[in-house]
Simulated assay, not measured.
Amino acid sequence: MTASSIPSRAVRYHEIGGPDVLQLEHVEIAAPGEGEVRVRFAAGGLNPVDAKIRAGRSRIQLALPVAVGREFSGVVEAVGPGVDDFAVGDAVFGSIPQGAFADAVLAPASVVARVPEGVPLEVASGLALAGQTAWDALESQNLHAGDVIVVSAAAGGVGGILGQLAVARGIRVIGTAGAANHEWLRSRGIEPVLYGEGLRERLAATAPDGITAVFDQFGPETIEAALALGVPPERINTIATDASAHGVRNVGRGAVHPPTLDALAALVADGTLDVPIAATYPLSEVRAAFEFLEAGHLRGKVVVTAE
């Protein structure tokens, strides 16, 4: 270990498999270089795609060993040359390609944003990937007040944020979810519809004048129902399954965009956007965190925290 680096624990895996392949290992984190910050980890949001990659069920393949985690929040503990926008002690959140689930996170300053006062770090930790994914997907459809959209898995990490963003823009939102989440959806201005068998008929009854666009976070069930109802394929967006198999769109998050992160955090701060935390686990219990995530039927984000 060099004098400029610091010891850290990091969640990694060396083989494809279930949550049991996850290990909390000792690594070293370098001093921040040009344009970088080093953040003392406070919390990090789990994402379903990370579980799919680890299990070998994604088209995304990463070289082993894989350092786990993309979303994070924490406090800046060191800044590299050329960083003028952040200082030691700033509360920030952001996203990196991998390796965010560690005691210390090294990241380009260009992929982090400040956490506003009053926004818990656990909540901020789920905004950089899930939040911007929702934002970018919604932006891709050029919607306006009065449009009618369907959001599947509408109480989940991405779906819950996307639905609320749309409501704030005056769009009518129908959200599919389990019955246990219907009351929360109503509280956020989203009209709940039960997923599962009979979905097409329930959607037709709820929106008899038609559906403008569909945002899928669940899988083929939602896409097939939308196509059967005559929603044009180009107006259906999925991040949950192979879009090409259904001839629909696949717009997820683009490059990390700090102004979007600032806007999302501001919406949380003023109460427009509610990001529920389904459960929190310390880094040492990251296996249990992924087991909980992969069981499904969640409201909001699963988060790992510093010890």
Rank of each mutant, 00 (worst) to 15 (best):
E191V: 14
I236C: 00
E294W: 09
L273K: 02
E285P: 00
F218P: 00
L203M: 04
T176K: 05
R186D: 11
L227H: 03
L261S: 12
R188Q: 15
L229G: 03
V268F: 06
T206E: 12
F290S: 06
R188L: 08
R249L: 05
L229E: 06
A228V: 04
L194R: 14
R200W: 01
A265Q: 06
V256K: 04
L267A: 15
H297R: 13
T280F: 02
A228C: 02
A213P: 05
S284R: 13
D270Y: 07
R200P: 04
A213K: 02
A243N: 12
H182D: 10
L199P: 07
G300S: 10
E183R: 03
R200M: 08
G271P: 03
Y281A: 10
L194D: 14
P276E: 08
F215H: 09
T222V: 11
G178M: 07
V303L: 09
N250W: 12
R249D: 09
S187R: 13
I239L: 06
A177L: 05
T280H: 02
H257L: 13
A240Q: 12
V193L: 09
T222G: 03
A295W: 07
T212A: 02
N181M: 01
D274R: 13
E201I: 09
A263F: 02
P220S: 13
I236D: 02
E224R: 12
G300C: 08
L227G: 01
Q217E: 14
E291T: 15
R172W: 00
E234L: 12
Y195R: 13
T238M: 11
R299K: 12
R287P: 03
T260Y: 01
L185Y: 02
W184Q: 09
L203G: 01
A289D: 10
A255I: 10
G296R: 13
A265H: 04
E221F: 00
P192E: 06
V231Q: 04
N237S: 08
P282Q: 01
I239F: 02
L273M: 08
V193M: 07
S244N: 11
D270G: 03
P192G: 06
G198H: 07
V248W: 10
D274G: 07
T212Y: 00
G198Y: 08
N237Y: 01
I171Q: 04
A289F: 00
R188F: 04
P233N: 10
E224L: 12
A205K: 13
V256T: 15
L293Q: 11
G175H: 03
V256E: 12
A205Q: 15
N250H: 15
G198P: 11
P282R: 00
A288I: 03
A168L: 03
P233W: 06
L194N: 10
Q217Y: 12
A288F: 00
R188C: 14
R253D: 09
T176M: 07
I236S: 00
Y195W: 12
E201R: 10
V256R: 07
T222E: 04
E285T: 00
L273D: 11
T260I: 14
Q217A: 15
D262L: 08
S244L: 10
S187Q: 14
L293G: 02
A278N: 05
I277Y: 05
A225W: 06
R186Y: 05
V173I: 02
L229C: 04
Q217M: 15
